[in-house]
Design a protein around this nucleic acid. Sequence first.
DNA 1: CTTAGGG
DNA 2: CCCTAAG
Length: 484
Amino acid sequence: MLKQVMEDESAEAIQFECLLVEPQDDHVSVDAFLCFHRNSSEKNMEMENFPCRSDGLKFGTDQEKEHLLGQEVLDLNPSKIEAENFQEPTGPSSTCEDYLLDVEFGDGGIKLDNDSTVALQNLVSGSYNQVDRAGDNGTTENSDSSGTADQVSNCQGDLDMTDSESHNIFSCTADGEMSLEQRWFKYPTFSIQNLEEDVSSMFSERNNKTMSFTPGLPSGGMLCPSTVEHTSAGAEANEESFLGDDASLSKNHTQAGSFSTSSEKRLRKPPQRFIDELSEPKSTSSRKRKEVAAPTSKIKLPHVSYHQQCDVKSRGDRWFPEESTGIAIQVPFGPIVQKESRTTHVPVVAKVLLQPNIEASMSGSDDDDAAEVILGEDGGRRKHHILWTVSEVRKLMDGVSQYGVGRWSRIKKDFFSSSAHRTPVDLKDKWRNLLKASCAQGESKRGDDRKRNLAWRPLPKSILQQVSELATLYPYPRDLRSKR
DNA sequence: CTTAGGG
DNA sequence: CCCTAAG
C-alpha cells in the first residue's frame, strides 16, 4: 500500500483514504504513515496549502516532520488526536454527541465536562478565560512549547493563517460564540482528519485509553451548545462551499463516500445523516425526513429534526422584533453532550429574560419577568419551552379577533411571522390553554384559591377577560367552549 | 399542508 | 410541547 501511495501521485487523496480505511496493523500503518511523510514532503506541503488543514497533526514543515519522526511521536500525538476528536467538525451538536458517544475517553470526559461547564457559565456571565487562552494560542506564533498543553498551542500557532485570521478564529467573543467549532467550519479537514482519527484509534488500542487529555485544550467551545447552534447556520453553507472549493481534491463525492465509509466502520451516525441530507437536500418537510429514516430508528430522526428546529429557532436574530413591550432574550442553547459524562452533570439552564418591563408600567398587569427553561438531558428532543409573553398573547388575541378561531395559519402569518417559533399549532395550543385559563379564572374567582392562581398564572386578568370575550365571540370548535 | 384533538 | 389523525 505504501508503494502505491508513493508511486501514484496523481490520486493521492484517494490513496490517503486507503490508508485511512484499512489500517491493518498498528505498526505497519504508523510506519507507513511516517514514511509517507518522510518521503513525500512535497505532497505534504501541498496538503498544507490545501483548503483542508490539520490542527492536531502538523506535518507540513520539516520541523514537524521531524517531530513526527522523533521519539515523541507516539507520546504526543494521541493527546492531540484525542483533542481532534473533540473538535470533530462534521456536524452540529448531534454529530458531536454521537461521536463522543462512540469514542471512549479516559480522562477526557471529565476534562470536557469542565470545559463545557465553563463554557456554559461563560454564556451567562459573559467572561471566560478561554478568551485569554485563545488569544495566546492564536496570536502568539512560535510560542515556546513544552508539555502537552503547549503542544496544542503550538499546533494552533502552526496554522498558516494570518494573525488576524487566527485571532479571529481563536478569539472567543465575550458572548462565547466563537469557538473551535467555527474554526473547523472555516477550515475543514476531512481526509487528514480521518487519518488522525484512525491513528487515534490505533493509539487507543495501543494505550488502552490511558493517555491523558490535553489540559490546555480549549475544547470546551465545541461543547458549548450556543456555538453549535450559532455555527450550524453557516455550517451547511460552509459545507457546501467546502465541497465546492474542494475541486482541487478532484473527487469530492468520492472523498465524501470514502469518508462515510471509514466512518461507518466506526459506527458513527453522523455520516449517515449527512448522506441523507446530501442525497436529498430539498427535504423541506420534516415529515419526509421522518419517513425516510423511520424504518431504521425512530429515535434518531426526531433528533435531527430537533436540531434543525434549533437551528431555525435559535438564529436569535429575530425573536420579538416588533415587541416594544417585553423583549425576551433567550440565550440560545442547545442540547449538551452528556450521556457518557456522568461525572460532572451540567444541568443546562437557559434563562429567558425580559427586559425591565416597560409593559408593566404600561398595562400594569404584566408580571412575567424571567423564566428558567431546563432543557432535557435526553438530548433535547423537546423544543425549548419558550414562555409566552403577554404581548404574544395579545397578538394571538388580535389574531383571533380578526380571523376567528381556527385559522391559526393565517394568524401566524399575520401576527407571528416575525417569530420563527410559534407555529400555528402552538397558537392553537396556546389559545386552548388561554381558554382553559379563562375558565379557571372565572371559577377560581368564586373560589378561595385565587391567590394560588396568581402564582402560576402570569397572565393578567384583563387578558383573561378579553380571552373570555373572544371565546364568546368566536366559539372554540369543541367542548372547551361549552364549558364556559 | 392545515387543523383538531389527545397525551 | 409533541404526536397523530383527518380533511
